[in-house]
């Protein structure tokens, strides 16, 4: 069963976990800003919150497809998602934005530059997310690495409410192993690449906390309509 005991591999296709993660990756979602709303910060934030709510639905269904996630008890599945949901949303935005210079691709039909972010009150967040984009772009982050890192962010979400710590550790280990395995085959020239990827996670955590704080204050403001799942997860933090 253990990969390393097999004969040498020639293609990327043999990493079973990475392949499952590639298959589980959700479709891209369109933002579809409401044409009836007047342009301005409220419209921009309403569009982003609506998009986030729909992405969250997809991400929850994605989590269920991660190898090993469904063996966790329901309460631990919830705890991981309640801690990592914003990291998952942001990492998807970051990956979509890799080909763009200084713009964030929230959706194919919703790309924001610094000017637009500023007028939506999102400049600080925009700059923080761009820092992640630049870091991954300079590494040449691949789709395989992106899906694996996203799964690791979920499994490594450091919730304080995990009941079966050992089971979560098994999930972390299997994803970590998949990343190490992938890098040892595809990037044998850089033995530190897996570590470099893992070392981006603190910035993702920090950026996610910033985003959650910001959207919590928008929620308290009460001027932007938010859907129930997005609200529920904001309240969980």
């Amino acid at each position: 069963q253990h990969h390393r005991n097999r004969s040498p591999r020639s293609s990327k296709d043999e990493n079973k976990v990475v392949n499952l993660l590639l298959e589980a990756e959700p479709e891209r979602v369109c933002a579809m800003p409401d044409p009836a709303l007047p342009d301005g910060d409220i419209k921009a934030l309403t569009t982003l919150c609506d998009l986030a709510d729909r992405e969250l639905m997809l991400n929850i269904s994605w989590a269920k497809h991660l190898p090993g996630f469904s063996s966790l008890c329901l309460s631990d599945q919830m705890s991981l998602l309640q801690s990592a949901w914003m990291e998952i949303l942001i990492l998807r935005v970051v990956f979509r934005s890799l080909p763009c210079e200084d713009r964030l691709v929230f959706a194919d039909d919703y790309v924001m530059d610094a000017e637009q972010a500023k007028s939506a009150g999102l400049l600080e967040l925009h700059l923080a997310i761009l820092q992640l984009v630049r870091r991954y772009r300079s590494m040449g982050l691949e789709r395989e690495e992106f899906v694996t890192l996203k799964a690791i962010a979920l499994a490594n979400s450091d919730s304080m409410h995990i009941e079966d710590v050992e089971a979560v550790q098994v999930l972390q280990d299997s994803l970590h192993e998949a990343l190490l395995d992938y890098e040892s085959v595809v990037h044998a020239e850089d033995p530190r690449r897996a570590g470099k990827l893992i070392m981006t996670l603190p910035l993702l955590r920090q950026t996610s906390a910033k985003a959650v704080r910001h959207f919590c204050s928008i929620k308290q403001d009460g001027r932007v309509p938010m859907h129930k799942l997005f609200l529920e997860l904001l309240e969980a933090n």
Binding site: H65, S75, M78, L229
Partner: peptide
């Protein structure tokens, strides 16, 4: 758990879990 009923429901309803 009461507070997180949508997440709870979605996790219970999603299809085709994968086990290692």
């Amino acid at each position: 758990k009461e507070k997180h009923k949508i997440l709870h429901r979605l996790l219970q309803n999603s299809s085709s879990p994968v086990d290692l």
